[in-house]
């Protein structure tokens, strides 16, 4: 199929960006979306032009690196997959495809379609862990966990940290991302001890970094490639409230 690509080009974080149109031809329906971009880049390099920069790595939907806004939707038109899992059979011959980077203040553009998501690492550093050291831990089966809670924790832990939730949200809220980690640990006995402090610290860091608040549109859930449930946000709000009520007086 032949396609017109309308791609956001921006030379650097400080440069002014703009859309540039490209034509690609003879794209196989079996090719992945990123392979289609590879073909475009290969042709640009051959012409001595600069290829389009975009983040990608595993190309099987698990590393969370790819992060494209395709025709106005994070990770494109299909549900429950990342950009790299999108195949060209989702598009039609002659179509124009608009490709943009994540657009959210806490994720500044680095170049073209690449953004800086280090804010997610910073939120994790604020409390996204159980404070155990290596060694000296009890036998794994000494901590029985109900299958239901283990499964729910796994549902939340499936988050790949891609940032589609933030990109989809009109408030650039990171609530789905943060709540997925908070929920995972809140559901497990290992995480219970530090639950109050964890939710306080992670939410505070999220706010400091400039992410917006949740206004319950659930765009995050709809666009999440791992289909993380917005119920996690409800759980986090409950955890947050409990943490606030039970917080020791300063």
């Amino acid at each position: 199929m032949d396609l017109t690509l309308k791609i956001w080009r921006q030379a650097s974080a400080t440069a002014k960006g703009k859309f540039v149109n490209y034509k690609v031809q003879d794209i196989s329906a079996e090719a992945s979306f990123l392979e289609m971009l590879d073909l475009l880049n290969e042709s640009l390099v051959q012409k001595g032009e600069e290829p389009v920069a975009f983040d990608h790595d595993c190309r099987e939907g698990i590393c969370g690196a790819c992060s494209l806004y395709i025709n106005g939707r994070p990770h494109g038109p299909d549900r429950g997959i990342t950009t790299c899992q999108m195949h060209m059979r989702n598009f039609k011959h002659g179509e124009t495809i608009v490709i943009e980077p994540w657009r959210a203040k806490p994720f500044p553009v680095i170049k073209d379609l690449m953004v800086d998501r280090s804010a997610f690492d910073e939120i994790m550093q604020a409390g996204g862990y159980v404070s155990v050291r290596t060694g000296g831990v009890p036998d794994a089966n000494a901590i029985p966990i109900s299958k239901r809670n283990a499964d729910l924790a796994m549902d939340a832990a499936a988050c790949i940290g891609c940032g589609a939730c933030v990109a989809a949200c009109k408030n650039a809220s990171a609530m789905l991302f943060v709540s997925a980690k908070v929920s995972q640990f809140a559901l497990l006995p290992q995480g219970k001890l530090e639950a109050n402090e964890r939710v306080r610290k992670m939410v505070a860091r999220m706010d400091e970094l400039g992410f917006g608040n949740c206004t319950n549109t659930y765009a995050c859930e709809a666009e999440c490639p791992k289909e993380i449930s917005a119920a996690n946000i409800a759980r986090m709000n409950r955890e947050f409230l409990v943490a606030k009520i039970t917080a020791p007086k300063e």
Partner: peptide
């Protein structure tokens, strides 16, 4: 043991 203590949600 270590991974379970960290909260890895094994099956």
């Amino acid at each position: 043991d270590q991974c379970v203590a960290q909260g890895v949600p094994f099956a």
